[in-house]
């Protein structure tokens, strides 16, 4: 993929903290107009990479290109078109949400009040616009962080753990905000997270790193296409043993049978679910529910990153 088409290109990126080598020649690229997830176990180098992208860690060993500007020389020009949201955004506590956005946001370019209020409304902080930042809850702080990131209509939005410390409702809201920004303002989004289900729901592209190297990158649909279909079958308790026998007999459709928490979890060949269902009903099994289990990134992730357990902590 050439540099013009990609939002972020990183090649041969290395970084040492003392003796510990955090990044060992990291290579990846993120295409434009995607919502890309940046995944990795704790200590894999996600935060370090994010900081190097944003120039918070100076001295780059390797190459970073963002929106076809090479870092660190093009940092200032690139950042004019990039919005960044860091973990736990720190605004001035004694100032209101509006004032904070005005003062920090004006460092990008001159802003109109209209744009500030538009963004505040977009992240759902309309009622708190004049409230002091110090009185905000964690979720509100994160949302104001996103507001700050999109204030100057960036082409690329970089987020570090945007939902850390948020409650489930907050996460759902954050996903809605990000999807809306992506759709309405045509912003490419690059976000780091270790919440896999969240990345799966939100992103269409993923970069997975482990131990300072990129282990997998690509569109989510491509990554998951290799998987078989998985279904959870719930039957009346008396029929459980019979169901298991029946399923075991359907060699051509059923790949694998496991006992789930409330029913049987079976892996099926793609497109065979209707056949299996009718087979069971014909045999007189009272099927209560047939629930599709979506193929998950989790498996891919754990397979790639060696159980997801690694030594070391977030830098």
């Amino acid at each position: 993929m050439n540099a013009e088409m990609s939002a972020i290109t990183v090649s041969r990126l290395c970084k040492n903290f003392g003796r510990k080598q955090v990044l060992k020649g990291l290579d990846f690229s993120v295409p434009l107009n995607t919502i890309a997830g940046f995944l990795g176990p704790n200590g894999a180098g996600k935060t370090t990479t994010m900081r190097m992208l944003l120039g918070l860690i100076p001295g780059i060993d390797g190459e970073i290109t963002m929106l076809s500007h090479t870092m660190p020389g093009g940092r200032t020009i690139a950042l004019e078109e990039i919005g960044a949201v860091v973990e736990n955004p720190a605004f001035i506590e004694s100032m209101s949400a509006y004032e904070n956005l005005y003062w920090f946001g004006s460092l990008y370019k001159p802003l109109t009040d209209q744009r500030i209020f538009e963004v505040i409304e977009m992240v759902g902080l309309k009622d708190a616009a004049r409230q002091r930042f110090g009185t905000f809850s964690t979720g509100m702080k994160q949302r104001l962080g996103v507001a700050f990131g999109i204030l100057h209509r960036p082409k690329l939005l970089i987020l570090d753990e945007p939902t850390s410390g948020m409650d489930p409702a907050g996460r759902v809201h954050m996903r809605e905000i990000l999807t809306r920004i992506h759709d309405e303002e045509k912003t490419s989004i690059f976000l780091s997270s270790h919440l896999l289900d969240e990345v799966q729901r939100l992103c269409n592209y993923v970069v997975i790193i482990d131990n300072g190297r990129c282990v997998k990158q690509g569109y989510v649909s491509e990554l998951l296409s290799g998987h078989s279909e998985r279904w959870e079958i719930r039957v009346v308790d008396e029929d459980a043993a019979k169901t298991r026998e029946l399923l075991a007999a359907m060699h051509e459709a059923v790949i694998d049978i496991n006992q789930g928490p409330r029913g049987l979890v079976v892996s099926l060949q793609t497109g065979k679910s209707a056949e299996v269902n009718s087979g069971l009903i014909k045999a007189g099994v009272r099927v209560v529910a047939l629930i599709p289990l979506e193929a998950s990134l989790e498996e891919t992730f754990i397979k790639l990153t060696g159980n997801g357990v690694s030594v070391g902590g977030g830098a």
């Binding site: 944003l54 918070l56 200032t76 690139a78 950042l79 860091v86 720190a90 605004f91 920090f104």
Partner: peptide, 15 residues
């Protein structure tokens, strides 16, 4: 320590 500096450096200002 509070992270204000980080917020400042996310904007296109030079150090």
């Amino acid at each position: 320590s509070r992270g204000y500096m980080k917020m400042l450096l996310l904007t296109p200002v030079r150090r």
